[in-house]
Design a protein around this nucleic acid. Structure first.
Lengths: 220, 220
DNA sequence: GGCATTTCCGAGTGCGTACTCGAAAATGCT
DNA sequence: AGCATTTTCGAGTACGCACTCGGAAATGCC
């Protein structure tokens, strides 16, 4: 589940219909942020387990311990909630990133990716959310579609740039097209994670990614 | 969307509740098979466009030109219909397979996979069905889950066997683990197809697969 | 305490879902 | 033509869905 080192995918129209444009923070404004956080957390889990379409406001409300209508006070539509979950997921994975531009050497790139893949093994919920929503988003009119299109484009160009930099240092095996290799790396990662979710003990995502990267890069 | 050269994934409980166990073929038995075929075809399209959960009997019935209840005569439950669609898809791709054991040489394996990937570019509906249902199947209690688990296992072992055969002839680059490489090939293919479905003109699945296979195999 | 504001919910709406039931229509062997 | 069987559907059931509405409770600045 390729990282988080691309540009932030547009805050956009998250605050749609009923949100206040005044800065006014009267009343119990303090608890609001915390509430939103716990709602997003519950929604994350539900969407991961059931998908966006099959996941319901009711189940999310049950988990967070409030009524379904109370939930609608914070997120007036279901896709608002979905986008909040996706952006929250970005924050999580960006926070978990160790060092973005620290090591552009081959060993650094490989180790960074392998480390992240290993770390992901302890977050099956996050991976599941990503895999399920990503595929669901290719259906007609899905609210997360543009999110994933933008995300893929960003990740691909980031990896391609990194590969080009390594290429300039002669660290990449000759004959490699950096754009195709970047798309392949992302695709490989995502595809392996799906197999891993279905049969965790039969697929080693991190090892397969290392294999691929070692094929790609010069032994140095 | 890895091929179809694995074992048939279990006919199992497709004919559940209301199907006849007698061979009796009275009345208008002739049209039955044709009807079933057209229903499965319409269901294939609908599930591909909307996913399993979001796809409805009503929409399928509309496309096939009959009532929703008439449709239930042939497929008493929704998962019956889903499994019929998946098995039908297997038949299609198996029929489209050129020659299973014809060419175990490196060039043959590469060419076969690249050809199939190219052919898939003209069948976005089939790819979409596969991608959407595959990810949806990792959600809790999805009726297609065991289908995909079995399918992945079969494809992986088939490719692993093929790679081992090539390895015995010294055609594989040294240091390759055939099991991991098989999982990687399948994952790469699936992951690239998702990106391709989102942005067809930005991702070349067949070219990326050829790149990977050429990295994997000895130049010969 | 007064009061604007935020937070929350019960009740309800309209729609879509898979699926049941019972019966009518079509079919083709005899 | 008779008739068992298959095919089809209209009507209905029970339920879940996202979302609306109007108001009640909680909150914290004055």
């Amino acid at each position: 589940m390729p990282t988080g080192r691309e540009q932030a995918p547009r805050q956009s129209t998250e605050r749609t219909t009923s949100e206040r444009r005044r800065v006014a923070r009267r009343g119990a404004g303090a608890k609001s942020a915390e509430r939103r956080r716990s709602i997003v957390e519950a929604a994350h889990a539900v969407f991961a387990e059931r998908g966006y379409h099959a996941g319901s406001f009711q189940e999310i409300a049950d988990r967070v311990g409030m009524s379904q209508t109370g939930l609608l006070h914070y997120f007036p539509t279901k896709s608002d909630l979905l986008l909040a979950v996706l952006h929250r997921r970005d924050e999580i994975t960006v926070d978990a990133a160790p060092a973005p531009e620290a090591a552009p050497e081959p060993a650094g790139l490989i180790q960074g990716i392998v480390d992240r893949a290993r770390a992901n093994e302890s977050l099956p919920g996050v991976i599941e959310l990503y895999a399920v929503l990503c595929a669901e988003s290719i259906t007609e009119g899905h609210p997360a579609r543009s999110y994933f299109v933008g995300r893929f484009a960003g990740i691909r160009t980031a990896y391609a740039a990194e590969l080009r930099a390594l290429q300039a240092e002669g660290r990449v095996r000759p004959g490699i097209d950096p754009d195709r290799a970047a798309a392949s790396l992302v695709g490989l990662w995502d595809g392996l994670q799906v197999q891993w979710l279905l049969e965790p003990e039969r697929v080693d995502v991190a090892a397969c990614l290392r294999d691929y990267l070692e094929l790609l890069l010069e032994p140095s």
